[in-house]
């Protein structure tokens, strides 16, 4: 059979700022997609030289090694305090934190809210997968009512464990916040929207306006006990019902 000449064009690859190391997350986890998104955003915004990231404990623990940018790691829940100091000492830099729902919403909620209260100019990437991943699938502040986890074996009962944390809406009520949005990356269109939101959350910091916050709904097939494809469905049907997408705040000045 005669060989057919094929014109090869690279249409996809590893983002320039993604270090050559294997992902360490479970199959179907959305963290890898969000890492790609962040790499693209940092690259496209041209801020790789002066951006400093801080990742908390949990499934984002390996992020500092994953990015080809200056990136530190933090104990559980304390990234906003560390970021505060770094931003105050290097005010020309762009400082962001990556925090899971246990990190930001439970152990570190006070630390996070106080960073907002102090009017810090930082950016936070909040990863909401409705449970604790690394420690083995326990209940998080974002676990949906009725959802089974290893510490809510009969399903989360709001009567004894309360209701899910709506971080993006809460953050939007804070005066010093310039931008707050909730996104997903479970479809290509949503990926593009999330990218725009992330850029905006960085831009608000760069322009000196205020805090930028993006909440990502992120699939966790291992904890949810679902296949990667079922997890997409779960986001579409269950997560979006509890956590509506959208921009909750977007201002160009705070007086």
């Amino acid at each position: 059979m005669k060989e057919k000449a094929i014109a090869k064009e690279k249409v996809c690859g590893r983002p320039r700022l993604r270090n050559l190391m294997p992902g360490i997350t479970c199959p179907g986890c959305h963290y890898g997609i969000i890492i790609r998104l962040l790499c693209e955003v940092i690259d496209e915004m041209g801020i790789e030289d002066n951006i400093i990231g801080l990742a908390g404990v949990g499934c984002s623990y390996a992020w500092p090694m994953t990015f080809d940018i200056d990136f530190g790691s933090c104990p559980h829940g304390r990234a906003p305090a560390m970021a505060t100091a770094i931003k105050r000492i290097h005010p020309e830099s762009v400082v962001f934190t990556v925090q899971g729902d246990g990190d930001l919403g439970a152990i570190g909620l006070g630390c996070f809210m106080n960073a907002l209260l102090r009017g810090e100019k930082l950016t936070t990437i909040f990863l909401n997968n409705a449970g604790y991943g690394m420690t083995g699938g326990q209940m998080a502040p974002t676990t949906l009512p009725g959802m089974r986890t290893t510490t809510t074996p009969y399903g989360r009962d709001p009567k004894t464990t309360g209701y899910p944390l709506h971080a993006a809406e809460l953050v939007a009520t804070m005066k010093s916040v310039a931008y707050s949005a909730r996104c997903t990356v479970h479809t290509p269109a949503n990926y593009q929207r999330a990218k725009r939101a992330t850029k905006m959350a960085f831009k608000k910091q760069i322009d000196g306006i205020g805090y930028g916050f993006v909440e990502f709904l992120s699939a966790c097939p291992s904890v949810w006990g679902l296949s990667p494809v079922e997890s997409l469905q779960f986001i579409e049907e269950k997560m979006l019902a509890e956590f509506p997408l959208g921009e909750f705040k977007n201002v160009d000045s705070i007086d």
């Binding site: 801080l54 104990p75 305090a81 560390m82 100091a85 770094i86 000492i89």
Partner: peptide, 9 residues
């Protein structure tokens, strides 16, 4: 942790 962040900076 601010101290820690500042030291890392």
């Amino acid at each position: 942790y601010m101290l820690y962040g500042g030291a890392l900076a």
